[in-house]
Amino acid sequence: MHDGPVLRTNIGDRAVDLPASLDGIRASLSEDLREEFDREIGSALITDVPLIAARWSLPQEARDEDEAMLQQLRNGDFSGFTGLDEPSPAGAGQ
């Protein structure tokens, strides 16, 4: 649980409360990650702050999973991904 405002989302199959303020995000990070967060958020264009804050509010394991998927795509491996013009896998969204 976080002090201050929270956002509720699902990660995997569980509901998770995320910090909903920059101070809350910063307080939820380890000391070494706070410095990285401060640098990134401090140098960001104001239009990018919501996306950066959303990413940093996620638990580390969710950020690691996102980074692994991005690296897979950067490596040209599109297995497991569905393009916008492709039909959804059977049962998706039901």
Score class of each variant (00 low, 15 high):
19 P>E: 00
20 A>H: 06
20 A>W: 08
21 S>Y: 03
21 S>T: 14
22 L>V: 04
22 L>P: 00
24 G>E: 00
25 I>Q: 01
25 I>T: 00
26 R>L: 08
26 R>V: 04
27 A>Y: 07
27 A>C: 07
28 S>L: 02
28 S>A: 10
28 S>K: 08
30 S>Q: 14
31 E>L: 09
32 D>Q: 13
32 D>I: 10
32 D>H: 10
33 L>G: 00
33 L>H: 05
34 R>S: 04
34 R>L: 04
34 R>M: 07
35 E>P: 00
36 E>I: 14
36 E>T: 11
37 F>C: 01
39 R>T: 11
39 R>L: 14
40 E>Y: 01
40 E>P: 02
40 E>M: 10
40 E>C: 07
41 I>Y: 00
42 G>R: 09
42 G>I: 06
42 G>S: 06
42 G>C: 04
43 S>A: 14
44 A>C: 07
46 I>H: 07
46 I>E: 15
47 T>R: 13
47 T>P: 02
47 T>L: 12
47 T>V: 15
48 D>Y: 11
49 V>S: 04
49 V>W: 01
49 V>E: 09
49 V>D: 01
50 P>W: 01
51 L>Y: 09
54 A>M: 08
54 A>S: 09
54 A>Q: 10
55 R>Q: 12
55 R>C: 10
57 S>Q: 09
58 L>R: 07
58 L>A: 05
62 A>M: 12
62 A>H: 05
63 R>I: 07
64 D>Q: 13
64 D>K: 13
66 D>I: 15
69 M>C: 10
70 L>R: 15
70 L>N: 12
72 Q>N: 07
73 L>A: 11
73 L>Q: 05
74 R>Y: 11
74 R>D: 14
75 N>F: 02
75 N>E: 15
75 N>W: 04
75 N>T: 08
76 G>M: 04
76 G>C: 04
77 D>E: 05
79 S>G: 08
79 S>E: 03
79 S>L: 03
79 S>I: 02
79 S>K: 10
80 G>N: 01
81 F>T: 00
81 F>I: 04
82 T>E: 00
82 T>H: 07
82 T>Q: 03
82 T>F: 06
83 G>R: 15
85 D>A: 15
85 D>W: 12
87 P>E: 07
87 P>R: 09
88 S>E: 13
88 S>Y: 12
88 S>F: 14
88 S>N: 11
89 P>G: 08
89 P>L: 09
90 A>D: 15
90 A>T: 13
